[in-house]
Amino acid sequence: MAARRPAARVVTGASAPPDGLWADASRAFVRWLDGDPSGLDELVAVMTPVLWHVVRAYRLPQEAAEDVVQSTWLALVRRRTAIADPAAVGGWLTTTARRESWRVAKAGQHVAPAADEELAARLPAESSAETSAVEADSRHRIWSAVDALPERCQRLLRVVAFERRPDYQSLASDLDMPIGSIGPTRGRCLAKLRVALVQAGEI
């Protein structure tokens, strides 16, 4: 683990580290609003990966997940003037994507389908050539530690990990949790993950 840690991270414990992603997204959005079409391209390039992971946290199958990401972009284009604060465009996008995921997941009852088997099956291929057996083992143990978390924890942590600063109000309704319990739940989920990593010998 230690080797893969970003070397220069300053651990403040107080707030999320300065995150270039959201600033890049806002700048691109403003450029597009000012009439430069490449601003939209860049915004899509910057935020699509984040949206993908947020949407997949709801365990939607690939095709449904891609549809949600696309609906989110179409909503942005149609409602661009409704986004009062360009600095908030990242949060607007992730919140919109979560709401739509939640709606689609509920409507279709896409319950934790084959996705997990699919994912597990990718492991050997990815750990073949360039990684040593030791690294592959380590990676597998880390994956298992994440997998062993309760589903609610997995979803919450994935959303939080990619959104960085999610809006608790919308998160609470999308995850079907009281707003007051998001913070404590996140803390408990992280503690569980820490324990699992210790037990796996990864810390």
Binding site: R5, V44, T48, H53, W73, L123, E126, W143, V146
Partner: peptide
């Protein structure tokens, strides 16, 4: 933050963004 980094990396490794998704979303937008 370290723990969230772990979570991020795990998902990026085994559920990566589909190859052409960004290009398709750019076209749609």
């Amino acid at each position: 933050e370290d723990l969230l980094d772990v979570v991020r990396r795990v998902h990026e490794e085994r559920d990566p963004v589909p190859d052409d998704l960004v290009a398709r979303m750019q076209a749609a937008a």
